[in-house]
Design a protein around this nucleic acid. Structure first.
Length: 178
DNA sequence: CTATAGATAATCT
DNA sequence: GATTATCTATAGG
């Protein structure tokens, strides 16, 4: 992994498109694939959990880059971010979608045998497929069960408005591979 | 294919 | 008490 995660959230969110993200299953299988959709959040952004400063929930966001920030939402879903930027700035990149390329059997099982195009095309689906929960909050990439690898090939992407937010909609901080 | 309702609990006001 | 960085099932075109 040679991506520099200590740059700002917007540029890092773009660089993460095409990277490969996996978690290691209990049998050693790598489960995950190529990141195809990300969103950037930082402390100046009213849509960000870090906007109002450090709280018990957002503590990890204000820690060092390269750790995982996991949050629970809508009463039933987990979503995962990669903490980026300089420590203390409260920046992170939400992993919204993957193109699975490893551990497909495990992913299908965890995702209740959904159609292939619906396995990991949403942030809570990614967490379910990679078995990420609140227990993983604060974990460090490439140390424990999380693996992040550089892209094999650069991907073309576009910038759009972020999904599911009501504040600061105008920022084009969602990045989607074409 | 699009549109919409309902589920359901942590977090913050 | 309101909001929420969502997903699924279902109804309709």
């Amino acid at each position: 992994m040679n991506i520099d995660l200590t740059k700002d959230a917007v540029s890092t969110a773009k660089k993460l498109i095409g990277c490969r993200l996996y978690t290691i299953a209990s049998d050693g299988t790598r489960v995950g694939g190529i990141i195809t959709e990300t969103e950037a959040y930082n402390q100046d952004d009213a849509a960000s959990h870090s906007y109002k400063g450090k709280t018990p929930r957002t503590e990890v966001m204000f820690g060092p880059a390269g750790h995982i920030y996991v949050y629970f939402t809508y009463g039933m879903h987990w979503c995962m971010n990669i903490v980026v930027g300089e420590e203390g700035r409260g920046e992170a990149v939400l992993i919204r979608a993957l193109l699975p390329d490893s551990g497909l059997d495990i992913i299908r099982k965890r995702r209740n045998n959904k159609q292939d195009h619906e396995l990991t095309n949403g942030p809570a689906k990614v967490c379910q497929a990679l078995s990420v929960t609140g227990a993983d909050n604060g974990a460090e990439l490439n140390k424990g069960r999380f693996v992040l690898l550089s892209p094999k090939h650069a991907l073309v992407f576009e910038a759009t408005e972020r999904i599911g937010i009501t504040k600061d909609r105008h920022r084009l901080w969602r990045f989607v591979a074409k």
